[in-house]
Nucleic acid binder design. Structure first.
Lengths: 214, 214
DNA sequence: TAAGAAAATCGACCCGGGTCGATTTTGTCT
DNA sequence: AGACAAAATCGACCCGGGTCGATTTTCTTA
């Protein structure tokens, strides 16, 4: 009988995550103490720390489970034949919906994704970023192949471009510059369009009719 | 004699900030406790809290002072006649230098600027964002007036665009995807160029020679 | 199955951020 | 000057995240 210990550990770990799911959802992250989690999981406080190194790590594990759902919905509703702009908006739109529906979690999660507190690069928060890349890279590659995107730009940079604009929009929501889902979504759309069209003036745009000042 | 009390309060406040400047710089933020600050400022611990609401607020006050220097250098070296791309790079380059030279402070500061922990919008971290806007808006307006930027795009959106890309680059540094100052700077330059040129294919670019796949 | 090693558990504890309420200082009014 | 109110100060305390080391449980192997 190989791995009775393993199975037991796995069950305990899951018990902690279950407790987190329930308590975080119920009282929120801040108002849930490690002791609470330990009690709900039926173990001692110190034992929690032999499963997770910090409270934040529990939170991230909790988030990964949540995001699994969101991501599933994303790939499900994605329509590969649509223009890249629509596809991108649809992908990020899902994520935005989740954030706006779960403000407290959303705040912490975004924060941790873009600017992880722990400088150590082998921490779970990195996986969140990687997940994004894995999700978006194929979209962009396809769009490149179809001539909807420039081919002379490194994939990473293009990915970073859209990712950065998304980050900006979320940040604006964070800081109260954008409030409703519509505000946020429209800003994202406008920025993505700008990214595709470019901010430098193009011939034929009405902005070129004004005289140029040297 | 109006305001003896005021003057005294001001002096105490300054004493705390001086202590912060010294101790944060010496031992770092995390390793400096409120008690340390209080001792160094020659007051009781609880008194600190009648000047600042949280430790983070002290940090932000400390940062504002630091950034004052950086900002001064920025406006000083800015050359209004240069192309907008160079001006933007020069502005953000200053900031990047500061971040890279002061990693611990830089990490926390950026984090707090983009994703403030306190949801309350009247907190000092907001001022950091506002400062940015005040710094960049004139640059962009001038560039618009000179025909270097599209005129049919709202200023806020354009500002957000560059700001977002900057955010992305800093985030990539944070998460160890970009390491050296050169990495970071080149990425920023590439992204800004993309922003100006657009990511959609343009006639005359070598990317259009490949066959298009419907 | 008994002994000893390795892993898991947990209560007691440390530490630091933040609060409370009693006490002192300062300013005001007569 | 003296009495009174308002503001400022601070030591003692609370709370929660995280650690330590002694104790218990499980696995190994002979």
């Amino acid at each position: 009988m190989a791995g009775k210990r393993e199975r037991h550990k796995e069950r305990t770990r899951q018990a902690i995550l279950d407790a987190a799911l329930r308590l975080f959802g119920q009282r929120g992250y801040e108002r849930t103490s490690i002791t609470d989690l330990a009690q709900a999981a039926g173990i001692g406080k110190a034992t929690v720390y032999s499963y997770f190194r910090t409270k934040g790590e529990i939170f991230l594990a909790f988030c990964e489970a949540q995001l699994e759902t969101v991501r599933a919905a994303i790939v499900e509703t994605d329509v590969p034949t649509m223009p890249i702009l629509d596809r991108l908006l649809s992908v990020y739109g899902r994520d935005l919906d989740f954030l706006l529906d779960n403000p407290e979690i959303g705040r912490m999660l975004t924060r941790e994704t873009f600017f992880p507190g722990d400088p150590d690069p082998r921490t779970p928060s990195r996986r969140l970023g990687e997940r994004y890349i894995a999700l978006l890279a194929p979209l962009l590659l396809q769009a490149q192949a179809r001539g909807q995107l420039r081919r002379d730009v490194e994939l990473t940079l293009m990915l970073g471009h859209f990712y950065g604009l998304y980050c900006m929009v979320v940040s604006a929501w964070f800081t109260g510059r954008l409030i409703t889902r519509d505000d946020v979504f429209m800003a994202l759309e406008a920025l993505f369009e700008q990214a595709l069209q470019g901010l430098a003036p193009r011939a034929g745009t009405d902005n070129s009719i004004l005289p140029q000042i040297p």
